[in-house]
Structure formats: structure tokens, C-alpha cells
């Protein structure tokens, strides 16, 4: 039986902030960031709220609509992102702290871009039809 009762919210938040600091140092020094899977840790809702409050709000907030809604926002620490992914029913399926210049999911994918380019002739023809 695993007993996590010795871990208070404050101690967990402190430990997680130290891990964030280590990841941020890695991103700055070696261009190696990382992620912390908050759902994989024995965190109470209040602990997650405290951590969220500690990290604060930065300059960027993004809503992604891909197989459900995702909210990605930069915290008050540049390069540290608070990411919440939900499925089509609104159920949270992943909650992460990502340490990266830009979260990978925001970057456009090459195959998707090619599919977009393939659609361009039809789009141009439609536009030309409107303007002629």
C-alpha cells in the first residue's frame, strides 16, 4: 500500500516548482525542455490549483480545437506552459506543465501543410468564380 499522506500540498508544489526550474535550466542551457504529467501524480485538486496560482498567467493564451478543446497558456515564467487537453465531450484527458520555446502541438505539421496546399487550387478557383 502506497502512503502519500506525508506529502502535503505545499511540499508537492515546492517539489514541482523545483522540477520546473530544472527543466527551464535545461531549455536555456541545452535547448532541452520537457513536460510534467500532472495527472500521473498523486495531486489533490487544491494542490493543482495552488500550483496553477503560483505559476501565474503570462502573455499568451491559445485555444486549440482538435478532437476536443485544448487550452494552452504561458505562465508568468516565459517558456513554461500550462496545458489542458479535453476530448470531444469536454472531459480532461491530459494536464501538463510543458517547458518549451513553443509547445509542439502548436507547430503546423508538414503533412497537414501539404494537404492545405493541395486544397489551394480549388480555393483559388472558387475565389476567381466570385470575382469574375
Amino acid at each position: 500500500m502506497t502512503d502519500f499522506s506525508f506529502l502535503t500540498d505545499d511540499k508537492l508544489v515546492e517539489a514541482l516548482l523545483m522540477e520546473v526550474a530544472g527543466l527551464l535550466r535545461g531549455l536555456i542551457d541545452r535547448d532541452e525542455g520537457g513536460s510534467i504529467d500532472l495527472r500521473g501524480l498523486p495531486l489533490s485538486p487544491s494542490c493543482i490549483e495552488t500550483l496553477d496560482r503560483c505559476l501565474g498567467q503570462g502573455e499568451i493564451s491559445v485555444v486549440l480545437d482538435a478532437a476536443g478543446r485544448s487550452e494552452i497558456r504561458e505562465t508568468s515564467l516565459p517558456g513554461v506552459w500550462w496545458t489542458k487537453h479535453a476530448d470531444g465531450a469536454g472531459r480532461v484527458i491530459a494536464l501538463l506543465i510543458e517547458v518549451a520555446v513553443t509547445p509542439a502541438i502548436l507547430r503546423a505539421d508538414l503533412a497537414d501543410m501539404k494537404r492545405g496546399l493541395d486544397r489551394m487550387p480549388a480555393l483559388l478557383a472558387k475565389t476567381a468564380g466570385r470575382t469574375s
Binding site: G34, S35, I36, D37, R39, G40, L64, A66, A67, G68, S70, H85, D87, I93, A94, L96, E98, A104, I105, D109, A111, D112, R115
Partner: peptide
């Protein structure tokens, strides 16, 4: 998935959820 209108972001999001579910490293 591309033919059905799912971009790679959907697939990456699915993979993020699955690695979390399988207790694999997010990386």
C-alpha cells in the same frame, strides 16, 4: 485520419493522452 479531417495535432493530442494514461514519459 487526414482523409477523415483529423490533422496531426489531433493525433499528437491523442498520443499525449495515451502516454499519460499508460504512465509513459510525456516526451
Amino acid at each position: 485520419l487526414g482523409r477523415r479531417g483529423f490533422g496531426r495535432r489531433s493525433l499528437l493530442k491523442f498520443a499525449i493522452a495515451m502516454t499519460s494514461s499508460l504512465a509513459l514519459p510525456p516526451a
